[in-house]
């Protein structure tokens, strides 16, 4: 069976920072400044979105590498998730009518296999932790556009003597350091 390569999914590679972290693949989009976490199956599909690998090929890859009874619905679910995260350059050809690639359908297919939660393709957003004040200086913009007071009191980078300070009840600005 021949395939029209122009319609095969093609991953975005430019403008992304990719980090492998254990079983997860982290992707930071330098353009949108969004970060995503792909689990193993989603990452496997995404990595093979090279414009030449077909959906049936991806099914085989999932079956071999994850040792699960994957089918096309699982691949389509993964493609759907990575496309929504804007990690595809060329969106895939729409799935054949009649293929149900909802999460529920994939779980039903995988129901016979163990460790379902680990293999259903998942792409989650990575958000900055609530209070990850890991830094010892911040920019003026970060200070003034950052979260509402109380401000952090961190020094402003490259402005000796200035710190991010609360200057009014609901406003933070670069001001004299304590």
């Amino acid at each position: 069976m021949s395939h029209d390569n122009s319609k095969l999914p093609l991953a975005r590679r430019e403008g992304l920072l990719v980090e492998e972290l254990g079983d997860e693949t982290l992707v930071y989009d330098r353009e949108s400044h969004e970060a995503h976490c792909l689990n193993r199956s989603a990452a496997l599909v995404w990595r093979h979105c090279d414009g030449t690998t077909t959906v049936p090929d991806m099914v085989s890859l999932l079956q071999q590498e994850l040792d699960i009874p994957a089918d096309e619905s699982m691949v389509w679910l993964a493609l759907d998730r990575v496309e929504k995260a804007q990690l595809l350059r060329a969106p895939p050809t729409p799935a054949r009518p009649g293929i149900d690639y909802s999460r529920r359908a994939v779980i039903r297919t995988l129901g016979r296999a163990g460790g379902i939660a680990l293999v259903v393709p998942v792409v989650t957003s990575i958000v900055a932790p609530r209070a990850a004040h890991a830094q010892s200086c911040i920019t003026r913009d970060q200070c003034e556009e950052g979260p509402a007071p109380p401000c952090s009191g961190l020094p402003i980078c490259n402005r000796p003597g200035d710190c991010c300070m609360q200057v009014d009840v609901d406003q933070c600005e670069a001001d004299d350091c304590p």
């Binding site: 958000v127 900055a128 890991a134």
Partner: peptide, 19 residues
């Protein structure tokens, strides 16, 4: 899970900062 998010966040942040 909040700590795990920090772990992921810092992994990316560190990769960026190393660059």
């Amino acid at each position: 899970l909040e700590l795990q998010q920090a772990y992921r966040h810092h992994a990316l942040q560190s990769a960026l900062y190393e660059e």
